[in-house]
Nucleic acid binder design. Sequence first.
DNA 1: CTGAAAGCGCTTACAG
DNA 2: CTGAAAGCGCTTACAG
Lengths: 363, 363
Amino acid sequence: MARSNRKPEVDYAAAAKRWAESNSSGRKPTMQDVAHLAGVSKKTISRIINDSPSVNEVTRRGIQQLIREIGYRPDPQARGLASKRSFLVGLITDNPTPQYVVNIQHGILDVLRQTGYELVVHPCDRKSDSFLEDAKRFIEVQKLYGVILTPSVSEDERLAEELRELGCAYIRIASIALDMESRMIVTNDREGGKAAARHLAKLGHTRIACVTGRRSFRSSTERIAGFEEGLAEHGLSVLPEYMLGGDYTFESGLALGADLLDLDPPPTAVFAANDEMAAGILQALHVAGRTPPDSLSVVGFDDFETATRVWPRLTTARTPARKIGRLAAERLFEFYDGDREIVAENETIPELVERDSTRRPSH
Amino acid sequence: MARSNRKPEVDYAAAAKRWAESNSSGRKPTMQDVAHLAGVSKKTISRIINDSPSVNEVTRRGIQQLIREIGYRPDPQARGLASKRSFLVGLITDNPTPQYVVNIQHGILDVLRQTGYELVVHPCDRKSDSFLEDAKRFIEVQKLYGVILTPSVSEDERLAEELRELGCAYIRIASIALDMESRMIVTNDREGGKAAARHLAKLGHTRIACVTGRRSFRSSTERIAGFEEGLAEHGLSVLPEYMLGGDYTFESGLALGADLLDLDPPPTAVFAANDEMAAGILQALHVAGRTPPDSLSVVGFDDFETATRVWPRLTTARTPARKIGRLAAERLFEFYDGDREIVAENETIPELVERDSTRRPSH
DNA sequence: CTGAAAGCGCTTACAG
DNA sequence: CTGAAAGCGCTTACAG
């Protein structure tokens, strides 16, 4: 049984067996137990679970095996207390679209799973007076490992500033770069707007309306700006009176959809800055007895469930929310690892999905 | 400055001032600091933050004020480490409807906000081999204060058993009582099904179809059973060949909606066990060139966003998800407080919302 | 590459 | 009603 390496003194398999036999009570092993069984100090076990490079390779392998066999799980609370940093990732959102939020969550969890980190959700109201204070307390008290921010909280400069002061890693998901590359996932909504415009222009539309989100939402201004750029490529533009201001809700789409019908001459197509408003426009048409896309083509943005539930099914620019969540989480961990090179993507491009809500203008 | 009570020895306001002056570095106060300033032991501070009754009232008031003034926040990690219980509530879900999940989350957070507890989300796949093991590790490693389970994981007896063995408080949200009262929030889907049946019967429908969810989903069997009970009150029933088996997805509704059109004689109304399938049926009708509810009335279940996005807007039985989440969280904390009397509701009744997808049969 | 000592900020168990 | 001591399970900072 000659070993090819030194350090044959410790038989880790036997140690595991010893533990199993002496632990009839089913007590969970602690770092102390592992250290004792392996004949090393706690510090060495600590180095191993923290992936410190300075541990003898043979020792490391053996102890990793031992850890697996006896089912040792480091206590996140103890680690947190000692290191002043928890194993929790915070997701701060103020986005009202459940489909977006849940998909982002799933994307983040795709990365967190099996890492020992958990996701703590924190919806908030950015307009509340205590917003900043609440967020600060949440981050500080929980000693979050890092935070992921979705639009529109991601656009809040004061919150980003606060995070930096607290020394908390964060990733901002937004339609344009608002921060250093290592802290951004950019969704490039402008390109999605462009794609929507090109699609309508190619179908032959010329009298085209827009329903925007609030001006304070960067995603909306980007989507609309992209749309206008795309139209301009074809020598087209949106007349000022065809530019209607919504707020990303279905209800605003429903109300503005009715307004759209009163426009003279009527537009033959409309681009809504998100699917919820596009769905509202479709419903307004149904209420008025129209059968879209007969007299009006409608393009949305996001491609969440709503897009395929409505009739006709929406042509829309897709926001790949789950992927965005995944990228954000990957970047968060790279950021913190510091020296590892950043290789993950940090940008997504919306892709236009053509369905039944758009067709050539009928005349 | 005579005080009406003994214990005038400690001037807490002065103590707070002293802290503010001596703490120019901005260090967060710890329990030790508070104890020192108040001239008591840590144990007394501990009693106060844990609402222990055995503290002198005057002392308690003064120290609570002191705590507020110097901004002391107990460290959840340290508390967790010492007490072997974290300040985290887990939400274990395997429900694919984002609108449900997000609303439940919001309901739970309505209760958790300002308590210091945080919500950790844990979507899972109940069919996975490692499901039970994963859940166990999550609960154990994080030392969760408690867990809230939504359908269908809430229906898993092995998981409930596991939770009991781990000594972890839990609340099951389900359509019927599956556990002791203190561990259940019952949604009574059966009543919703009944209401749907009565509505259709009153409109004069007699040839009525059903689209069910999977038989393994209790909510579906309850909804359908309630529906049949409601019909029976009016001497009606669903013919076996009018009973179609879906799986709660939009896609299954779309496929079965097409099948519905081939039935001879055709039904004049259909009850789908959730909105997603009802939306699928509506779309199948549109695809076939029908204009519901002309030839077919459709009733759904849930009243999530989808219900009002589709055309015609769905008549449906409402699942008050946010309220359900709130009740579950309230119950979770009562359960743990032990001796407090349980007064919160533990049951919700779906309410029928009448919209445009149902009308009298046309003949 | 490895370890001994001290400490993170609380609670527990006990004593009075 | 209150407190002194020990300990929860780790990491840090230092030393070698």
